[in-house]
Design a protein around this nucleic acid. Structure first.
Length: 480
RNA sequence: GGCGGCAUAGCCAAGUGGUAAGGCAUCGGUCUGCAAAACCGACACUCUCCGGUUCAAAUCCGGAUGCCGCCUCCA
């Protein structure tokens, strides 16, 4: 099996060949922990979660590292506003992050380093850069000298000359070049600081990833990931620091995920259209969120809205329905572990092509369709060969679910949870509804259909939908 | 000003040379006292427009139009 990955560095799909055969080192930029995580963070984390899961499934020994930036201007600012320590802010939001991602069934990386726990590593890299003449010190600040790294701009595809024309930020006049960036920021009153050979201070943003990736993955590793917005300047600067310091290639494959828009608008603080993960999870099942995020190719932008989420949610219902039918049909049959040639292989093919989860999900639905057709055609059948293929289908379905991070629940639990979710979301007088349903049940018992229908109409006007089942009448809020 | 991306049915979306996956919605059917849910079936002679390359293009090249992102903290 050959995996092909779109490499942002070359802007081409390339055949994936890890530095060490059979092993994958993967570093993904995690959040700066100064606020709650939004759906955009979720996308990045879920996308790389799936990539890690898939590589592991394919037999690679994966070392997955995702950092927390826990010292930074925004954290300090937030801490000062609230009158607490930066550390307290960072810890609060790291915990929130872990809760949110846990709720989304995200598997933990092998290492989740924090910048503040690797100050020594960071100082070491900076020292090396200074010794090599690639960085310079001014009043306790240390800057990287970008002109000393000839290939600067190779990831983002921009040249220094072009950028200067568009620069519209206040330039620190002390710097040799306006695009030189801080490796170390000298201590200021009220800010966290560490001792260093260059004086007390704290690390700049970019250097932590160079230091920590080297600590856990070595000087050259396989996959470096993050959101598209990190390409410049963050990843560009990481490359400059790391390759200049070690004189070796940094990451082989650069993988960047696209943005999440909200109702076709860019999500931003100023527009006030941030969607916090915990709010989304109040309305939707975590696996519906995953299915939504993975229904689009990871490099394309996606639009988050009630409509698109509701669609993903319906889709997940359909998948769980099929699983439930399959469980019932296959219940009496001994499990056969033989793989079903076809379904899993097709899914694998999709994933091998730059982790095309959207295509993979299409295959999932196609399979569900086949299963339903089969079940319809063999309603009475329980013959051995028939059951065998069902079992194999089920195995494949669950294996695919294991990559996408869905089907973690039994269909029964899933539908129970969906119902609770719907009831919580809606503001209804459930007592009154229950009473009306009781009245209708009476009417139906005496075959008073006209009264029964009147009650149904009344409930419909209240946007309540009824489902008469053998075990009783269920009700739910009409889907928007 | 520089760099990059995208334009596929009512909507979402996959598809980088071989004759348009999948989902949602809609319509028809099975089921039901009627419904709902579930399932089955139907649903793009065509991929923004114009030109070119090719036996063959949604897919490659050139141009036009429209939308978006990055160049500043940002997943």
């Amino acid at each position: 099996m050959t995996i092909r990955i779109f490499n942002s560095l070359t802007r081409k799909k390339e055949i994936f060949e890890p530095v060490q055969p059979g092993k994958v080192g993967m570093y993904v930029c995690g959040p700066t922990v100064y606020d709650s995580c939004h759906i955009g963070h979720a996308r990045s984390v879920v996308v790389f979660d799936v990539i890690a899961r898939y590589l592991k499934d394919q037999g690679y020994e994966v070392t997955y590292v995702r950092n927390f930036t826990d010292v930074d201007d925004k954290i300090i600012q937030r801490a000062n506003q609230l009158g607490v320590s930066s550390k307290a802010i960072a810890e609060k939001y790291i915990q929130e992050f872990n809760e949110d991602m846990g709720a989304l069934h995200v598997q933990r990386p092998n290492h989740e380093p924090k910048a503040t726990e690797h100050i020594a590593d960071i100082i070491q890299v900076i020292t090396k850069l200074i010794h090599k003449g690639l960085a310079y010190t001014i009043d306790g600040d240390v800057f990287f000298r970008i002109t000393a790294f000839e290939q600067y701009g190779k990831l983002s595809g921009r040249r220094l000359e072009d950028m200067e024309a568009g620069a519209r930020i206040d330039v620190d006049k002390r710097k040799e070049n306006p695009f030189d960036f801080a490796l170390w920021k000298s201590a200021k009153p009220g800010e966290p600081a560490w001792e260093s050979p260059f004086g007390p201070g704290r690390p700049g943003w970019h250097i932590e990833c160079s230091a920590m990736s080297m600590r856990f993955l070595g000087e050259t590793f396989d996959i470096h990931g993050g959101g598209k917005d990190l390409i410049f300047p963050h990843h560009e600067n990481e490359i400059a620091q790391s390759e200049a310091a070690h004189a070796k290639p940094f990451a082989k494959y650069w993988v960047h995920n696209g943005f999440v828009n909200i109702n076709q608008e860019k999500m931003s603080k100023s527009l006030g259209n941030f969607k916090i993960i915990r709010d989304v999870l109040k309305d939707f099942h975590p696996e519906a969120v995953r299915l939504f995020l993975l229904s689009h190719h990871y490099r394309n932008p996606i639009d988050f809205s009630d409509k698109t989420m509701a669609e993903a949610s319906s889709g997940l219902d359909k998948l769980y329905n099929a699983l439930e039918r399959l469980d019932q049909a296959a219940a009496a049959v001994p499990d056969d572990k033989r793989p079903n040639p076809g379904v899993w292989e097709k899914f694998q093919e999709a994933m091998d092509d730059d982790f095309n989860t959207a295509k993979g999900i299409g295959i999932l639905f196609e399979t569900v369709h086949q299963i339903n057709r089969f079940l319809e055609a063999h309603k009475e059948a329980d013959a051995g060969d028939v059951s065998f293929s069902l079992n194999a289908m089920r195995t494949d379905l669950l294996r695919i679910g294991g990559i996408l991070g869905i089907f973690a629940e039994s269909p029964q639990d899933y539908f129970a949870k969906q119902k609770t979710l719907a009831a919580q979301t809606a503001d209804v007088d459930s007592q009154r509804i229950e009473q009306l349903i009781k009245d209708r049940a009476e009417a139906r018992k005496t075959k008073n259909w006209s009264l029964a229908d009147r009650i149904r109409a009344e409930l419909t006007a209240m946007h309540i939908v009824l489902e008469d089942r053998p075990e009783g009448t269920l009700w739910r809020i009409e889907k928007p």
